[in-house]
């Protein structure tokens, strides 16, 4: 793993990108790493494009600014592909882009007119509806990210989810999220 990993999250307000960006940071902290997780608030409207950021490092993190050259990008809503330059700043050789879509990596590549990078897709909304009963794609996207990035162990993320959902959530919500993460971990595909 490089010394500093930077992840940018693209979503619409209400899809849980803030929670996801912080949750990965918290899971990294559980593994003894240094991390930051923060949202980029515009107008706090349901449905408006928003971003989240996560940094993970073996050393203390001193920067406090947005992420301009992310090694990894997670897109929680494929309608953003035509609205926001989600690939901006990603390295052409090994940049990683994961999209929540029913389409394929080739579809995403065509849509973004993008060469290089590694592109992965997962129907996280479908999984969320099946397993959690609500179209909130953030937790399955965590499963997909852990599979393709090798950033943290899936067990750590699961443990952090359990910690987070132990307070004020019904047990079936937690169980649904755990199943959704596991399924996305297994079903994510790409090129």
């Amino acid at each position: 793993m490089p010394q500093l990993t930077e992840i940018r999250w693209h979503a619409r307000g209400g899809q849980g990108a803030k929670t996801a960006s912080l949750l990965v940071a918290e899971a990294a902290a559980m593994e003894g790493k240094y991390s930051q997780g923060f949202p980029d608030y515009g107008p706090e409207r349901m449905g408006a494009p928003m971003r989240g950021f996560t940094r993970i490092s073996d050393k203390p993190i001193r920067v406090h600014c947005a992420i301009y050259e992310p090694g990894m990008v997670v897109v929680l809503d494929d309608t953003l592909l035509s609205a926001v330059d989600v690939a901006a700043g990603t390295p052409a050789d090994d940049g990683l882009i994961i999209v929540n879509t029913v389409g394929t990596a080739a579809d995403v590549r065509r849509e973004l007119k993008l060469e290089g990078r590694k592109i992965f897709t997962i129907d996280a909304t479908g999984i969320a509806i099946d397993e959690i009963g609500r179209p909130i794609p953030n937790t399955p996207m965590l499963g997909a990210l852990m599979k393709v990035s090798n950033l943290l162990s899936l067990d750590t993320v699961m443990a952090q989810i359990k910690k987070k959902f132990s307070h004020g959530f019904r047990p079936e919500i937690l169980e649904g999220n755990i199943r959704a993460i596991q399924r996305a971990y297994e079903e994510v595909v790409g090129e």
Binding site: L22, A29, Y34, S35, Q36, G37, F38, P60, H64
Partner: peptide
């Protein structure tokens, strides 16, 4: 301390 930049950033 800086709003959002620190207030809403989780860090170690």
């Amino acid at each position: 301390f800086d709003g959002f930049i620190l207030s809403h950033t989780a860090e170690i």
